[in-house]
Amino acid sequence: MRWGLTGAAVAFLGLMLILPLVVVFATAFSKGWSGFSAGLADSDSFAAVKLTLIAAVISVPLNIIFGLAAAWAIAKFEFRGKSLLITVIDLPFSVSPIIAGMLFVLLFGAQGWLGDWLAARNMRIIFAVPGIVLATVFVTVPFVARELIPLMQAQGREEEEAALSLGAGGWQAFFRVTIPNIKWALVYGVILCNARALGEFGAVSVVSGHIQGVTNTMPLQIEVLYNEYKFVPAFAMASLLVLMALLTLVLKHWIEWRSARSLAQIGSGPDRAIAPPR
């Protein structure tokens, strides 16, 4: 029975995950290393990598700040509308990314609510870099907050209160007590957020305008290349994205392992769903 189930799981994963990954890399390198590097050397592709990194570099720190602020407020304080706030944080998870994109078009588009105001000031948001960043921020909002909220709720506020009563300042308590307690969950949230920021397609596609070399992110550029029958460059770029994702996964596992170990050392810790290493 156990072998049957394990075999089924392995076969499924092999078919659904490993095989496609092999295909991505095999196609990317089907014309050798020179074909692969030539595929990435194109200036439009280079611009796409740059834009994707810009979007990630802006959205991840914003996410950390927002996630910390939201989780802190929700876990440590009682206020009205708290459950509403929790629900709103989850919104980007529950709506389709295309709706996120259309929301920005309705808001900032030429026919949108703020369209005339923006046009009068010659400010461009959608179909320009700010729109890409906004869409990325929107779809990644929940990641850090979602990781922190349950942990911080479980930890309660006793430790901070103790620190304060012993004479620590507010920020001191935050950096010396709160941050060390949530360190691993925070890093984990950042990694998930980063992965999504790099890979987002739907919302970004709506607000991009697909201007080559300007507003195409890596996922969009992959679609462009694929539709152009440029299979080697398309898969070269895809494999780059896959590599980034794999790196993220490796980091994630390392973090889980580290955090499980540090929890084990403390001996008592909140009951997170992390199995101790065997």
């Binding site: 802006i58 914003l62 700040i65 927002f66 910390l68 602020a69 802190w72 407020a73 440590k76 304080f77 400010m123 461009r124 948001i125 320009a128 870099v129 700010p130 960043v133 906004l134 921020v137 304060l164 507010g170 935050f174 300007v214």
Partner: peptide, 27 residues
Amino acid sequence: MDAQFKSGRLLTLTVLAALLPCSIAPV
């Protein structure tokens, strides 16, 4: 103190959110 804390965070967040759209204007 706790309240100060919270409003400080929220203020930072608001300022950042407001700055974002103006930060990159290709010229």
